[in-house]
Write a protein that binds this DNA or RNA. Structure first.
Length: 802
DNA sequence: CGCTTCGGACACTCAACGCA
DNA sequence: GCGTTGAGTGTCCGAAGCGT
């Protein structure tokens, strides 16, 4: 008799071994382990092989699940199969069991037959093409128009002639793909290449290579001649139909394979779907304008009515929307609005959305909707997953987008204005995600400036466009629903240019050597002017929360870009030669960056969009402030710095885990310990030797000095920072003077103007301008005493992360 | 010392194949 | 149709690493 710790299983593939194969004691493993999941015949009796259908009831009569839960499976630990299982209970996480049945097997049959047949067919086409290439330059066939009523159309790019005839979409601003770039493209081959876009309802496929372009054309012609409808099927194998061999390989990307299983049980109750959608509209759409809400609303609500029969692509989109909605809510809101526990729901929907992508055949998808869903999912998952996951899958998303020709402007292919706009929105959100995800991992963005020509979306409201429109609408002058996104797109373009590093073994410290400091400063100034002129001067920051967010984000970004350009990490001397004045400015700018970053996350009226901003840890600013706090130990600016650092450090630190961001966090933690220790020493000294010359009281202090233990011996007037927190009056005890003409500063920083918890929004943008952005003073070599420890930080902090 | 991760051994399943 | 084979899939032991 085998010692038997396994529960008796009923049904399912692991329910019971065929009687003949019940493992005998002698078949125990070499290392003495027991055979697993083999039921004891003595206890099981004649439990025979049962079909999968029997196992569809997840629970057997003993209330146990036939399979291990997802968490145990992932952790490769024994699952007691109770609901919830002991491991999940102990970890206080939701216990989710996979659907019944095993994942479908991959075919053992080599897919040669189909491939060979296709090859043979194409060989004939190649031969016929060869006749036309004798002179080395095969003539390109004219635009192939689909016959009336034909669902398939092949659209050749409009030629350069049309492009140069003033057919500009009117949104070319300073941070659009520049004219210079476009000219380069015209001479470097983008226009010469004559890409071809094959479009069908909701699907598209892009071919740029001349050979394949011609080939697809020939094949299309042959199809017309042969009138062979089956060819359409070949071009568009039904996703998830199982006919495509690659579909069977998708499971490895997103967890284990459940491609063939239903995700029906993972949807929220049908009556709740409208609530999820309304949360999405309120919390996601304003800051991530990806969809055309009027049409998408109809699509989503229609799908909700018949959730059992939606397409696999739509399924992926629905789960992305659920996931996004839950991401934006606080744990309490999740319970009040949706009656669910946030973390558990995030895990559940993430599992479902990944499975849905696999089921939708996303690796070979030609549907825009799947890419939109993936973009939405990746943007939201950044909030909780800081591993390489987002960066890696973003690379995949870029490829998928290129395959659909999203990187080419729809107008060149005579797509409808509506479709063109949606494709532009998607592409620029992909670009932004690319920049963000790359920054997270200290690498250059994947998308190169010259690799696309998709224009910015027009500055419009959703109401201005509809699917049936024939003419492109006129862009608005003032703020629209797109304004916030357009600003982000401008910024991502600028960041891409700033972070461009020439290929080759260039040392990290001079990674941006291709651009001079003055060029970078000019670029930032141009961006600043562009944002101000084009968008911000139209914003009503006092009463429209989204406008306030836009203005605050703009200032934050400009300030951060200044910081990045001037950051000591960017200098070959690691900052040793920075003049004191520059350091002071940097210090102040950094504090304000952190303050406003925090404000964006916590301000009451804009809290619902905080999910987007919470993914942005201000590494540069934090590192610099902490390094400065190792040498600046007293004074009101130091108090102010500690106030904000104490506020964010644990929270930001808590959101990073042991992976990559965790690695970046390590040196910051070390720096924090050192800064605290220096601060404690200084406070102790001041307590012993106060400024009035008396012998001070021996103060008790803990090892974590902060604003509550500044040990000030002088009564100081209190000021309020951007977060509405109080700190002592600058200048009173030799603090740093406010720099009005220095780095971009958040004005006004005067007592009690900012009231983040009050009715009006904090006055982050009253001046309506970022102020004068001066060039850095000439660099001078100064004493580097203040930089004690900085070298260590530089060593600790992998330079590539900056 | 408890917890997590994960390589890898093992059990089980079933498509493919040979054979009668 | 049936038996055999071997590769795919699922489970989970136990070593190693990590944090407290």
């Amino acid at each position: 008799m085998v010692p038997h710790s396994e529960p008796i299983l009923e049904g399912g593939d692991f329910a019971a071994s065929p009687v003949g194969s019940v493992t005998s004691p002698s078949s125990a493993t070499q290392n003495g382990t027991q055979p697993r999941d083999s039921s004891s015949p003595g206890e099981n009796g004649p439990l025979l092989h049962q079909k999968r259908a029997n196992s569809s009831t997840a629970n057997g009569s003993n209330g146990l699940n036939p399979r291990s839960c997802i968490t145990c499976r992932k952790r490769k630990v024994k699952c007691d199969k109770r609901h919830p299982c002991s491991n999940c209970s102990k970890a206080a996480i939701e216990c989710v069991f996979p659907g019944p049945g095993r994942a479908p097997r991959r075919s053992r049959k080599p897919p040669d037959t189909e491939l060979l047949a296709r090859l043979r067919r194409l060989e004939g086409v190649v031969q016929s093409l060869g006749k036309g290439t004798d002179d080395g330059e095969e003539p390109l066939s004219p635009l192939i128009s689909a016959p009336e009523g034909d669902k398939l159309a092949i659209k050749q790019e409009e030629c350069a002639q049309k492009k140069s005839s003033g057919m500009n979409l009117g949104m070319i601003g300073a941070f659009q793909p520049s004219k210079e770039t476009k000219n380069d493209e015209q001479t470097n081959g983008m226009v010469k290449e004559f890409g071809r876009l094959v479009v069908e309802e909701g699907r598209s496929r892009y071919v740029s290579n001349k050979f394949w372009t011609s080939l697809s054309e020939e094949v299309a012609e042959m199809r017309d001649i042969l009138d062979d409808p089956t060819e359409d099927e070949d071009d568009y194998p039904s996703p998830g139909s199982g006919s495509s061999a690659s579909a069977n390989h998708l499971g490895f990307l997103f967890s284990f394979s459940s491609i063939a299983l239903s995700l029906r049980n993972y949807h929220p109750p049908v009556e709740q779907i409208a609530t999820y959608w309304s949360i999405f509209k309120s919390n996601v759409d304003p800051v991530l304008k990806l969809f055309h809400i009027p049409t998408m609303e109809h699509t989503v609500l229609t799908a909700a009515k018949d959730i059992d029969h939606i397409s696999k692509s739509m399924e992926a989109l629905m789960f992305s929307i659920y996931y996004a909605a839950v991401t934006t809510l606080s744990p309490n809101e999740c319970i009040t609005l949706l009656g669910i526990e946030k973390q558990a729901s995030l895990r559940k929907y993430r599992f479902a959305v990944e499975q849905a992508f696999a089921r939708a055949g996303f690796l070979s998808t030609q549907e825009l909707i799947v890419l939109q869903a993936l973009l939405l999912f990746l943007t939201c998952v950044r909030r909780t997953d800081d591993s390489r996951y987002v960066w890696t899958i973003t690379g995949l998303l870029i490829r998928l987008a290129q395959a659909l020709g999203i990187h080419r402007d729809g107008q060149r292919f005579n797509l409808s204005p509506f479709e063109t706009e949606l494709r532009r929105r998607l592409w620029w959100h992909i670009c932004t995600l690319d920049v963000r995800a790359s920054e997270d991992h200290g690498v250059e963005p994947t998308i190169g400036e010259a690799s696309f020509d998709t224009n910015f979306p027009l500055n419009l409201n959703d109401a201005d466009i509809h699917p049936a429109m024939k003419e492109a609408p006129k862009e608005h002058e003032g703020a629209t629903e797109l304004t916030f996104d357009l600003m982000r797109f401008s910024v991502s373009t600028a960041v891409r240019r700033l972070s461009y590093a020439p290929p080759g073994p260039t040392p990290c410290r001079i990674k941006n050597a291709s651009l001079r400091l003055e060029d970078k400063e000019k670029m930032i100034e141009e961006l600043h002017q562009h944002l101000e002129e084009k968008y911000l001067r139209h914003c009503d920051t006092a009463t429209v929360p989204l406008h306030w967010v836009a203005a605050t984000v703009a200032r934050l970004i400009i300030a951060k870009m200044w910081l990045v350009v001037h950051h000591p990490f960017q200098r070959s001397d690691a900052g040793a030669g920075l003049p004191q004045e520059t350091r002071d400015r940097l210090f102040q700018t950094c504090i304000e960056i952190i303050e406003f970053s925090r404000l964006l996350e916590t301000e009451k009226t804009t809290l619902k969009w905080g999910w987007l901003f919470r993914t942005y840890v201000q590494w540069h600013a934090l590192a610099f402030v902490l390094s400065q706090l190792c040498t600046r130990t007293l004074g009101p600016e130091v108090d102010r710095a500690w106030l904000v650092i104490d506020g964010v450090f644990d929270e930001w630190g808590g959101s990073v885990s042991s992976n990559l961001r965790g690695m970046m966090w390590k040196p910051l933690r070390k720096l924090m310990v050192k800064a605290r220790s220096e601060r404690a020493k200084a406070v102790q000294n001041r307590a012993l030797f106060p400024l009035d010359g008396s012998i001070g009281p021996i103060m008790n202090f803990n090892s974590q000095p902060g604003p509550d233990m500044n040990g000030s011996a002088v009564e100081l007037p209190m000021f309020t920072n951007a977060l509405g927190q109080s700190y002592t009056q600058p200048n009173e005890i030799g603090g740093i003077e406010r720099i009005s003409d220095g780095f971009p500063s958040f004005e006004p920083m005067v007592p009690n103007t900012a009231s983040p918890n009050g009715d009006s929004l904090p006055n982050a943008f009253d001046s309506g301008t970022f102020g004068h952005l001066p060039l850095d003073p000439p660099m001078m070599l100064e004493d580097n005493l203040n930089w004690a420890g900085w070298d260590n930080v530089v060593k600790d902090f992998d330079m590539s992360y900056i």
